[in-house]
């Protein structure tokens, strides 16, 4: 435990206010249980998600930069975003504003017209909820606090696209031992293993769930998700652990859609890694929002003596 990130700015983002609320709830509960303080950004806005960039990429940079500026104004140098989309967009804004004069010009102009501070590159840096736990508590810190080990639970860790790609916006990754890898990320594996889980070798950890087109091209999304679900099952997983609300909801939705539309039933359960860590620390299933998931994992959790 390094004592890093004891108190950070918290950017939940839009999805965590609604369909991804279980992730929001479990992240906050996990922080509380570990003695880590989260201070929500005041009056934040949408980061642009995967859509605004398709109208104009620099507008997305502005939307994300506004949130970074708020963190700076509140006196923070670190903002933690649990959603892969938010995390990715804030990281991309940091990168673009540090490297591209055109982006800086647009963000400066829009921030002035909107009447708020302009984010200066390097002022605030974004971390993911995985970095937060890994760096503030670490595997050893977690091991010491585990009350209800996940022992026996076979987990496939699914990281998705936005956590590692494209690699140039994540300068702190791929820095050798101890750092996160963009080709084979392992932070979630490390943390869940420390909580007693049996993490299976899951080759599709950074494959795409089709989240960007989850409603606009549902058949392709269902095929991509079905591929993830059946592979996880073939790897022996009982649970897929997620760290992104879009991936999580996509997996849940298309698991049902695969059964209803293509007649392909899969049994693997889908849980946020924060829910799993929370239960390992002795929090109840209800406390970490398992009832708010679309994928009903209650039977499995009871059977494993969790929740």
């Amino acid at each position: 435990m390094s004592g890093k990130h004891r108190k950070v700015a918290y950017y939940p983002g839009c999805a965590l206010e609604e369909t991804g609320h279980a992730y929001n709830r479990s992240t906050k509960e996990l922080g509380k249980a570990l003695g880590l303080e989260l201070v929500e950004l005041e009056n934040w806005n949408c980061c642009g998600a995967m859509e605004v960039k398709n109208l104009d990429p620099k507008l997305q940079t502005y939307l994300s930069a506004r949130n970074l500026a708020i963190a700076g104004k509140m006196g923070f140098d670190t903002v933690m975003a649990p959603c892969n989309g938010c995390y990715h967009n804030l990281k991309k804004a940091e990168y673009d504003l540090g490297h591209d004069a055109g982006s800086r010009e647009v963000v400066e102009r829009l921030s002035q017209k909107a009447g708020h501070e302009t984010y200066e590159a390097g002022g605030v840096s974004t971390i993911h909820a995985l970095d937060w736990i890994k760096e503030a508590i670490g595997e050893d810190g977690l091991k010491n606090r585990v009350e209800n080990s996940l022992k026996g639970l076979k987990i496939a860790n699914y990281y998705g696209c936005m956590y590692t790609r494209p690699r140039h916006i994540f300068p702190e990754k791929d820095k050798g031992p101890g750092s996160e890898s963009t080709s084979k990320p392992h932070f979630m594996d490390d943390l869940l293993a420390a909580a007693g889980a049996d993490c299976v070798e899951f080759p599709l950890r950074t494959a795409c769930c089709g989240g960007a087109h989850t409603l606009s091209d549902s058949d392709i999304s269902t095929k991509l998700v079905l591929n993830l679900l059946t592979t996880a099952e073939a790897c022996g997983a009982e649970v897929i652990a997620t760290e992104c609300p879009t991936c999580h909801t996509g997996l849940e939705m298309h698991q049902v859609r695969a059964e209803k539309v293509f007649g392909r039933k899969t049994r693997v359960k889908i849980l946020y890694f924060t829910q799993l860590l929370g239960m390992a620390l002795g929090l109840s299933a209800r406390r970490v929002g398992v009832q708010e998931n679309l994928s009903d994992a209650s039977d499995l959790l009871r059977q494993k003596g969790l929740g």
């Binding site: 839009c14 949408c46 998600a49 859509e51 605004v52 939307l63 960007a212 087109h213 606009s216 091209d217």
Partner: peptide
């Protein structure tokens, strides 16, 4: 206009209008 572009427009229009989105 393809479905994904329609989705981008609807989504972005909400962000532009209110700063946030409401999924429903």
């Amino acid at each position: 206009q393809k479905p994904s572009m329609a989705f981008d427009e609807i989504f972005s229009a909400q962000v532009f209008a209110t700063g946030k989105i409401e999924e429903g």
